[in-house]
Simulated assay, not measured.
Amino acid sequence: MLTNIFSQAGLANLLLSLPAVLWAITFHEYCHGYAARLLGDPTAEREGRLSLNPLAHLDPVGAICLLLFRIGWAKPVPIDTRYFKHPRRDIVIVSLAGAAGNFLTAFVCAQLVNFLPALFGSWGAQQFILLMIIINLGLASFNLVPIPPLDGSRILYVLLPPSCLKYYFWLERYGMIIILALIVLNVFPYLMQPIMSLLLRLLLV
């Protein structure tokens, strides 16, 4: 995308991507906070993060990566596991909630395409709804990668036996560096392309 970003089509795609990116990261974090609230943790609500305002969740670097590379992240919603009655189970539920929100968005958008195709007769409408699907699927899939601080790492933390936690804590220390290095080296597209292709085929039947 970077090679043609300043072409007419590239700029159009960039502009159409902006609302999709803002929705994807906002709803992702809102779902984390909402799930935590349902499980007894009011931290996100108390700190103003149980909100659909994009400014409450925006991480500039993560948003730019999502905009340009279709993989990215938002500012994590604060969670206090001391409020959970079943911490191990509830951590998994809250961690999966963000990706679930993005998958739900992609599913709803795909159903609009499948059942109301007349709404998407123009190139702009078709491109926007496709970007909504791709960006939400990309954000969900990327955040399930088990590298800290991504959501998948919290699930990994719960599932790991105590004897392996020292490796997790090492990974946690360097997780962000590893993620940025994998983005720069363009590794994630090769890992995620088969998953994205499969999900798109399942949704756009």
Rank of each mutant, 00 (worst) to 15 (best):
V21Y: 02
P54H: 12
C65Y: 02
A110T: 05
L156V: 10
A100S: 15
C109F: 11
A12C: 03
A74D: 01
D80Q: 09
H86S: 15
L14K: 03
Y34E: 11
L22F: 14
F84M: 13
L156S: 07
I179A: 00
A63T: 10
N136Q: 08
W123C: 00
V205G: 06
P148T: 14
Q111N: 13
L203S: 06
S163D: 07
N114I: 10
R82W: 11
Q111M: 15
P189H: 10
P117R: 13
L119V: 07
A99R: 04
L203W: 02
P189S: 11
F84P: 12
L11F: 10
G175R: 05
F84T: 12
A56P: 08
E172Q: 15
N53I: 08
V158A: 14
I79N: 06
R49N: 09
L200E: 08
F120V: 11
I91P: 03
N136C: 05
L182F: 15
H57W: 08
P148K: 10
V21R: 02
G72N: 05
W73L: 09
L112F: 13
L68P: 02
N4Y: 11
D41T: 07
A74V: 02
V108K: 04
A181T: 14
G10V: 06
G101E: 08
I179L: 15
F107N: 03
M192P: 00
F115C: 00
P117H: 12
I64H: 01
L144A: 09
L159Y: 13
R89A: 14
H28V: 06
L112N: 04
I147G: 07
Q8K: 05
Y168A: 10
L22Y: 03
V94P: 02
A44D: 01
L180E: 04
G40R: 13
L119F: 15
N114Q: 14
D151L: 12
L67H: 04
P78E: 06
W170L: 11
I134W: 01
G10W: 03
R201C: 00
F188C: 12
L14M: 09
K85S: 14
Q8I: 03
P87H: 14
Y83E: 08
L68C: 01
P146C: 14
N4A: 10
L144T: 07
R201H: 13
L130Q: 11
P117K: 12
L11V: 01
L2H: 04
L39K: 07
L156K: 06
E47W: 13
F107W: 14
P148N: 14
A36I: 10
L171P: 03
T43R: 03
V187D: 01
P117F: 09
G124S: 13
L131E: 08
I155N: 11
F142Y: 12
F27E: 00
L180Y: 15
Y83K: 07
F115G: 00
Y174Q: 06
